[in-house]
Computed example of a mutant assay.
Amino acid sequence: MADDSRTETSSQLSSPTDHGSVDSGFLSGTPSTVSLPRISLTQPHLQHLNKQLESLHPMDILRFCKIFFPNLYQSTAFGLTGLVTVDMLSKIDAESANPQPIDLIFLDTLYHFQETYDLVERVKSRYNVRVHVFKPADVETVSQFEELYGEKLYETSSELYDWIAKVEPLQRAYSELKVAAVLTGRRRSQGGQRGDIKIIEVDDERGVIKINPLANWTFAQVKEYVTEHKVPYNALLDRGYKSVGDWHSTVPVGEDEDERAGRWKGQDKTECGIHNKQSRYAQWLKATAQREQQVQVA
């Protein structure tokens, strides 16, 4: 797959530091890795927007976001919710005499199913949308990745894998594309850490506004939309998968299981780090540095 968005990139990992309060009401970290959001929203304003948007149809939420937020992108792994968002955005563009498509950001971990890569091409063809592909820094293939980090890094050090394959590439995407706001495919019905997400959230660590336009939709509603509008979707969904990630950490789910039950099955995790307040690997780095400091003091 061609990668038209990777120009000057960096593979250097930065250790996080404690975040301090600032006058704007947001939190900030080290200047090299995070920044204040390019859009400034006070907490009262944010609460007001979420209250107004909560009862709106996702199409209306997307219409509002296209007008309100500059430098708006959609980050997607081409799951069902993200695909519904792509389709809705295409319909909104069709309403306008001067359409302004929203570009997509796709994190190619190099370990996606072939069915996922096939779907990316189908979506690009169907919607004529631009996809910015970001891979782990300084590698293009699985063999190059494993030459640098060893085989099965996702098993030997899953937090390091998440950082290298997902968290760092997303931060690089935000930086290179100057992303101010990003649409996600998260929904409350997916459970776990997503159970109480708002429509609009401030990611103060990464310096962007996150928007969850289908936050209050159920899996059944998403699937119904896909069927009704003939939205292209991952062939794996017809084989018992409900949520598709990397092939090494995704399995089919039972009829009555949660839709994300097939992700990291048997592991003590529900997120890969890109939606966490702080990546678990970054937390590990911080804890390790603190332990080393304590040893030196002792």
Rank of each mutant, 00 (worst) to 15 (best):
S5T: 10
S10T: 12
S10H: 15
Q12R: 14
Q12A: 11
S15G: 07
S15M: 13
G25E: 11
G25Y: 12
F26H: 13
L27N: 01
T30G: 14
T33H: 13
I39H: 07
L41S: 05
P44A: 10
L46Q: 04
N50G: 06
F64W: 13
C65D: 01
F68N: 02
A77C: 07
L89M: 10
S90T: 02
D93P: 10
S96L: 13
A97S: 10
A97M: 11
P99R: 03
P101I: 00
P101K: 06
D103K: 12
D103S: 15
L107N: 04
L110D: 03
R122F: 05
R122T: 05
N128T: 00
V129T: 10
V131G: 04
H132S: 12
F134L: 06
K135G: 01
A137G: 09
D138H: 02
E140L: 08
T141R: 06
L148F: 10
Y154F: 13
E155R: 10
T156F: 08
S158K: 14
S158P: 14
W163V: 00
W163K: 05
I164R: 11
Q171E: 15
R172Y: 06
R172W: 02
Y174E: 01
L177V: 08
L177P: 13
A180T: 04
L183F: 15
S189F: 02
S189L: 04
G191H: 08
D196S: 11
I197Y: 08
I197E: 00
I200F: 11
V202Y: 00
D204I: 03
I211E: 09
N212F: 01
L214A: 15
N216L: 05
V231M: 12
P232I: 08
A235V: 05
L236W: 05
R239E: 08
G240F: 01
G240C: 04
Y241I: 03
K242N: 08
V244Y: 06
V244P: 00
V244T: 02
G245V: 04
T250S: 14
D256M: 03
E257Q: 12
E257N: 07
R260H: 02
G262W: 06
G262E: 00
K265I: 00
Q267C: 09
K269A: 04
C272S: 07
I274D: 13
K277F: 05
K277S: 06
Q278W: 13
Q278A: 03
R280S: 15
R280N: 14
Y281F: 13
Q283E: 15
A289S: 09
A289V: 03
R291Y: 09
R291K: 15
Q293K: 12
Q294D: 08
V295K: 15
A298I: 07
